[in-house]
Lab assay of single mutants.
Amino acid sequence: NRTSFTQEQIEALEKEFERTHYPDVFARERLAAKIDLPEARIQVWFSNRRAKWRR
């Protein structure tokens, strides 16, 4: 089942994506704690966001 992201979560994710397309585990963990999502969801979001960026 899909995770629905809040506007705040999307903004935080997009901001980090501007900084780096490949956040390391520490950056992902920090973001996970900040926006209250599992680190695995963040990893998947970045993977999908990079795919979207390449299109």
Rank of each mutant, 00 (worst) to 15 (best):
E11M: 12
R2H: 06
R19V: 08
R2D: 12
K52A: 13
K52F: 07
L13H: 01
L37H: 02
F26A: 15
R2P: 09
E18D: 09
F5M: 14
E14Y: 02
E29L: 12
V44F: 13
T3H: 04
E11R: 08
T20M: 06
H21V: 05
E16M: 13
K34P: 03
P23R: 01
R2E: 07
A32E: 04
R55P: 12
A27I: 03
N48L: 12
R50P: 00
T6E: 04
K34R: 12
F26M: 14
K15H: 11
A27V: 10
R54G: 14
A33H: 07
A32V: 03
I10T: 14
R55V: 06
A32G: 11
A33N: 09
T3P: 10
V44Q: 05
D24C: 03
L37V: 14
R2V: 04
R41L: 14
R28S: 05
A33R: 11
N48H: 15
I35M: 10
R19D: 13
P38I: 04
R50T: 03
A27N: 07
K52R: 11
P23H: 00
E11F: 13
T6Y: 04
E16P: 00
R50L: 06
F5H: 07
V44T: 13
V25W: 12
A12Y: 04
T20Q: 08
K15P: 01
P38C: 10
A32H: 03
W45G: 00
R30Q: 05
A33M: 09
W53D: 13
R49K: 12
R49H: 13
S4L: 15
S4C: 09
A33F: 05
I10G: 05
L13P: 00
E18T: 09
Q43E: 12
D24A: 03
A40K: 10
E16G: 02
D24N: 06
K52H: 08
R2A: 04
E29Y: 07
A51H: 07
V44N: 12
K52E: 11
I35Y: 13
H21K: 09
R54M: 14
Q9L: 00
A32K: 09
N48C: 10
D36Y: 06
E14F: 02
A51N: 08
R50M: 03
I42F: 02
R19A: 06
R28I: 14
L31P: 01
E14R: 02
K34S: 13
L37P: 03
E29G: 13
T6V: 03
A33Q: 15
R54P: 10
H21L: 05
E18Y: 03
L31F: 02
D36V: 07
T20A: 05
E39A: 09
R28T: 11
F5G: 03
E39M: 10
A51R: 08
D24K: 00
A27C: 15
K15C: 10
F46E: 00
E29W: 07
A32I: 04
A12S: 10
S4K: 12
D24T: 04
N48E: 15
R41M: 15
W45M: 00
R2M: 14
A40M: 08
A51S: 13
K52C: 13
T3M: 12
W45L: 00
E16S: 07
R30E: 13
Y22T: 10
Q43N: 10
F26P: 12
S4A: 08
I10P: 03
T6R: 07
